[in-house]
């Protein structure tokens, strides 16, 4: 099934500049329906208020990290299957293993390029 380019995507990062970069990269890839959250708790509230097709989240944020957000999402009956990609500078093996165990669908290490973003998104939501 073809990917709906109009599906809502939630991007989560505490760096406004990074949100802007990811939003622009997504726009270049054809996705224009993008919302932003500045930390995990804000993201969780938004996810519970509107159906999203994908979450792209940073790890290191306060007060709720992306890792905690991931665990909350996976523990939520309604959000449990939501595609979730972690985009982070946390590049230790332990981080990747922990995120995988918590149920992340894919993991992108910063800095990254649009080709990597596209490849990882395709692996999670399908080719576009």
């Amino acid at each position: 099934m073809a990917v709906d380019l109009k599906m809502p995507i939630l991007i989560v990062d505490d760096y406004k500049t990074m949100l802007r970069i990811v939003r622009n990269l997504l726009q270049q890839l054809g996705f224009n329906n993008v919302d932003e959250a500045m930390d995990g708790s804000q993201a969780l509230t938004m996810l519970r208020g509107k159906p999203y097709g994908l979450v792209i989240s940073d790890w290191n944020m306060e007060p709720m990290t992306g890792y905690q957000l991931l665990k909350e999402v996976r523990a939520d009956a309604k959000l449990g299957e939501l595609p979730f990609i972690m985009v982070t500078a946390e590049s230790k093996t332990d981080n990747v293993i922990a995120a995988k165990k918590a149920g992340v669908n894919n993991y992108i290490v910063k800095p990254f390029n649009a080709a990597t973003l596209k490849t990882k998104m395709s692996a999670v939501i399908g080719e576009f």
Binding site: D13, Y15, T17, M18, I21, N24, L25, Q28, N60, A89, K110, P111, F112, N113, A114
Partner: peptide
């Protein structure tokens, strides 16, 4: 080229961290 500019701008996040 615009895409490469956006990609390169992510250095700021890493630098900040």
């Amino acid at each position: 080229a615009v895409m490469r500019i956006f990609e390169a701008c992510s250095f700021q996040d890493i630098t900040g961290q």
